[in-house]
Nucleic acid binder design. Structure first.
Lengths: 337, 337
DNA sequence: CTGAAAGCGCTAACAA
DNA sequence: TTGTTAGCGCTTTCAG
């Protein structure tokens, strides 16, 4: 069933059908009704590929979401969609797995959907000009930046928290409660990901507070998974190192870590204090509720869209935004006794 | 940059470029190298729309995932992908929001991607023949069935747990521990969704065990959200109804419910026992760990693909599979005292 | 092994 | 208000 068939059945030309389907104003009521009747009767659905191919332009803004089912992104996506639509654009979203190349996906989508701009939700921190050269529309990195890359600041935008500072703040919070032996749970301290940035903030804080960096208290679990955090911490606990607090670089890692702690009969926060970064919904429901530094998700979505549209419409230029986190008071931090 | 440009630059015809790009065997090494060089030099990416449009057929199997970021689906998707590829097909996945129409999305994708078959991951239970008439390839409903619909059993497949029985089992588990006042937390008892099916299992169990259905113990929170479950249960607790156990129809609703219980100073399972259905990863990490009836996710993904491919290749026919749940022993069920 | 040319289904001038 | 027609970028016969 193609537009041609519909045209024939309705006794009009394909262009008339096309006009009806696209709500063009210059169609007679009569033709409109005839076409719509046939369309509905036949359950006709236009072919998007053909549509996209024929069109020369669009008002599409693409969103490439890296890492499926990250609860953390859901709110941001919602906000992005709201603002994109409010500005008269259409959001086209695609989720890719963590192992896929977001740049490639973006470049592809740019051509397919004739994008006006692109938002990357999650991605690597080390893009080079060479790597992003295949994308030809303005783009903004949401939730990450180019910390370990070499992009020119005038060639991309980013909206993210200051991960180093967030980690610093987390450690400070523990320090202020008297903790001196602070373990850190991370993916790896040198993987060029957000794990590294937050680790660097941890180290900086220790320095500032006159604490010594103790490698024994650095727990690398080699992933951001809840399960790996659990087993990694569980194993680490066998060492019996002395510590009174634990900084987890991500909320869900904290969930894994806390179970490991419980299973070793540590009470939280009685024996061990725990703090993290992210502020996903689930950790509002842990027992005890996780104390964490929340990323301002709504704000991040909003800013990403605003910056992008400003650029698209020639009003603004690329910029790198660093947002502050908001501390969510939970019940996992106690005073060192 | 189109295939034409590449052809010109490489000094060959578009067909040769197309052959190279699609790994056709009948291309001279020389032509191949020339083309590849130009392609890489220019960062050329073929346009998928044009590609799809031109192609007459494919080996694609579509997956429409309903409800973004449902942690429950992640594992199933992984399994589906594995098996699809193993059988020489390609998985094409699309996520749609809970408010979108999965049938429409499937029908669209079928035409775009020239699908051989379709798997719906999550969806409504009340399809009618009329509604699915727009999809023209075999499809299987994964994680749900047509309980409230009117499809002919020979027109679709489904792979799901027996939700009614799972609910029954959950209630039985509580009953066997001596509980007689069993509250149920659900979205709504009559919304035609899985919430209703599980509610019916709850009612059936009460009947079988000679317990009276008490409307005061039916907690409708009007959604499947963790937050709504939390606030719904919290509010309900103000009534001070007598109960010793709580059956939550979904794991994440149990997370919300448990927080509400804690905040009212109920200890779990000391004062109140809790049981649920689903078996998502997060609830392995709650404190205490949730006792729940797990859906066999891997198996569900596998069966869906196997059934579909059997039909596609003319070996099998549509069927409705009902899988059993697996009880995960947690620590939220106690003996009534 | 290679090229020319006919579509794939739709949109958008351009004419009428 | 309508119809005709030329593409959009690619794949795929069909000849050569």
């Amino acid at each position: 069933m193609t537009i041609k068939d519909i045209a024939k059945l309705a006794g009009v030309s394909v262009s008339t059908v096309s006009r009806v389907l696209n709500n063009h104003p210059d169609v007679s009521k009569d033709a409109y009704n005839k076409v719509m009747a046939i369309v509905e009767e036949n359950n006709y659905i236009p072919n998007t590929s053909a549509r996209d191919l024929g069109k020369a332009t669009s008002n599409n803004i693409g969103v490439i979401v890296r890492g499926m089912s990250n609860p953390f992104f859901t709110k941001i996506i919602y906000e992005i969609n709201e603002r994109v639509e409010k500005n008269g654009y259409t959001m086209v979203m695609q989720q890719i797995s963590a192992s896929d190349d977001e740049i490639m996906a973006g470049a592809l989508m740019e051509r397919e959907k004739k994008l006006k701009g692109l938002i990357f939700l999650g991605g690597r921190l080390d893009y080079t000009p060479q790597q992003v050269s295949c994308i030809g529309v303005p783009f903004v990195c949401c939730t990450f930046n180019n910390k370990y890359g070499t992009l020119d600041k005038s060639d991309y935008s980013s909206v993210a928290i200051d991960d180093n500072q967030a980690a610093y703040d987390a450690v400070e919070k523990l320090f202020n409660e008297g903790h001196r032996k602070i373990a850190v749970v991370l993916s790896r301290p040198d993987d060029g990901s957000v794990s590294q940035v937050r680790y660097e903030g941890y180290v900086r804080a220790l320095n500032d507070f006159g604490l010594e960096l103790d490698d024994n208290l650095v727990i690398s679990v080699n992933s951001f998974n809840i399960a790996d955090a659990y087993s990694g911490v569980k194993e680490w606990l066998d060492n019996d190192f002395d510590f009174s607090a634990m900084f987890c670089i991500a909320d869900n890692m904290a969930m894994g870590a806390m179970r490991a702690l419980r299973e070793s009969d540590f009470s939280i926060p009685g024996d061990i204090s725990v703090v993290a970064i992210d502020g996903i919904e689930f950790t509002e429901y842990t027992n005890p509720q996780l104390s964490t530094f929340c990323q301002p998700m709504q704000r991040m979505g909003k800013d990403s869209v605003d910056i992008l549209i400003d650029i698209i419409e020639g009003r603004g230029h690329h910029r790198q935004v660093e947002l502050s986190t908001i501390f969510r008071v939970g019940a996992t931090i106690g005073t060192f006794k």
